[in-house]
């Protein structure tokens, strides 16, 4: 029935803007609710042990009952480690990219290496960072910095070269200097690439911080909670933590995507 409803909705042709966005939002929502409903029915109906997969209602109750713990974990992992690491990692990646861009030699030398490192399993750095910076959030922030740095570097350098020759020549005829060309032409043209990196990094940062917590933390934090509650077989608490991580990750991603839409309204994919 839900399937019929969704397929009817998605084939409807709606002209005006606001109802269309509402319909576009409802379709995935109905789909998601159906999935949750199926999950609930299947786990209860088939008697799946709640250690394996607790039904959504049980997870919901657990979330409602342990809000203070969840809030403390959120503050430790997200507000401290993720945000700090994300901002510093992206900013340094961006700054280095601007510097590298000035010299073709550096660009040729650094880009292949940057591309290589961006594909490497950097999460593996986590034990080293914990050893260097201690158990608190600083070591997690360090992992996040390293993880977010390379995607930002590679994407910004690639973005800075997108402005075409025509536009650059035009800027020359205006007698604009390097900085004017950079700020008025090349940086705006690079924005789609920069936002691509920001979006990739928003999920990477959360992953980095949580995984780094597996290697040792004080007794608070999302990664810590997940690994200890798994050990105690409190799977519903783990799922509550996952739900919160997913919510935080999606909101973070959505926020970056929203800012992107505001700033790169001129890009063909949004027109």
């Amino acid at each position: 029935m839900a399937w019929l409803l969704v397929s009817n909705l998605s084939t409807m042709k709606i002209k005006s803007y606001i109802p269309r966005t509402i319909v576009n939002l409802t379709i995935p929502l109905i789909f998601g609710l159906t999935l949750l409903f199926l999950w609930e029915v299947l786990t209860r109906g088939l008697g799946v042990p709640s250690i394996l997969l607790p039904p959504p209602s049980q997870i919901g109750v657990r979330i409602a009952n342990s809000l203070p713990i969840l809030a403390a974990d959120f503050q430790q992992t997200f507000l401290k480690a993720v945000l700090f690491g994300y901002v510093v990692g992206c900013a340094t990646g961006f700054a280095i990219a601007i510097v590298v861009d000035r010299s073709p030699f550096m660009r040729k030398g650094l880009m292949p290496i940057g591309n290589l490192v961006a594909a490497l399993p950097i999460v593996g750095m986590a034990p080293i960072m914990v050893m260097w910076f201690g158990f608190d959030w600083q070591s997690k922030a360090a992992v996040v910095i390293v993880m977010t740095f390379f995607p930002m570097l590679v994407n910004t350098v690639a973005g800075l070269s997108t402005a075409g020759h025509m536009e650059r020549d035009l800027m020359r005829t205006y007698a604009s200097n390097y900085w004017q060309t950079l700020f008025k032409l090349r940086l705006p043209a690079a924005l789609p690439f920069i936002f691509n990196a920001l979006k990739i990094n928003s999920t990477l940062a959360l992953i980095g911080a949580i995984v780094a917590e597996f290697f040792g933390t004080p007794i608070v934090g999302m990664g810590f909670r997940i690994s200890t509650e798994v050990g105690r077989m409190n799977v519903d608490m783990v799922w509550a933590e996952i739900a919160m991580a997913a919510l935080a990750g999606s909101l973070f991603y959505g926020l970056v995507a929203l800012i992107e839409r505001r700033l790169t309204f001129w890009h063909p994919s949004y027109r």
């Binding site: 969704v6 789909f31 992953i207 997940i226 991580a245 997913a246 999606s250």
Partner: peptide
């Protein structure tokens, strides 16, 4: 329309974090 948004959402869940 129904699956694509969820595919994108699925990646904002830090799967690596819950891998263990």
């Amino acid at each position: 329309k129904s699956l694509m948004p969820w595919i994108i959402t699925s990646q904002t869940i830090p799967i690596l974090a819950i891998a263990p």
